[in-house]
């Protein structure tokens, strides 16, 4: 089985720094996640998540500041409002909603970051590659 491809959209102010913290503490976590730094988790549109799947990602992560800690005060509310609906859209389309991980990591939470990454990588590893599922049955 090929290694799963995971794209993580990390907000600049909390999650991305949380990743740094994890790195500085030399915490071990799987290397599958390719990180894309975004200004805010609210910046990540459902279309962008879907496009990421289309481009071949097996899993997509959207990590932001904890609710209440957003650098822009309510930027992450936007993620908290849209992403759960997107998970439902995936579910009703027959795409495992577990392929989309939405979570919150502060700059100090290196361990939490490592755990989220590790758990999500395991979750995705247990699923078949998405590109395999995304082929027409007919023909």
């Amino acid at each position: 089985m090929p290694e799963p491809k995971i794209i993580g959209f990390l907000c600049n102010w909390c999650s991305y720094r949380g990743a740094d913290t994890a790195g500085m503490a030399r915490l071990k976590y799987p290397p599958n996640v390719k990180i894309v730094r975004v200004p805010c988790s609210g910046r990540v549109s459902p279309e962008l998540v879907l496009r990421t799947f289309r481009e071949g990602a097996d899993g997509v992560m959207v990590l932001g500041c904890h609710i209440g800690d957003c650098h822009y005060s309510t930027g992450n509310h936007r993620a908290a409002k849209r992403m759960p609906v997107l998970k439902k859209v995936l579910e009703y389309s027959g795409i495992d909603p577990e392929r989309l991980c939405v979570n919150w990591v502060s700059a100090a939470e290196g361990e939490r970051f490592a755990k989220i990454i590790t758990d999500f990588t395991e979750t995705i590893r247990a699923l078949p590659p998405l590109t395999e599922e995304m082929t027409w049955t007919k023909g």
Binding site: P46, E47, L50, Y92, S93
Partner: peptide
């Protein structure tokens, strides 16, 4: 047919 994932229909559902 439009390629999978069905972007048109996923985006429209959203």
């Amino acid at each position: 047919p439009m390629p999978l994932p069905p972007m048109y229909h996923l985006v429209r559902s959203m």
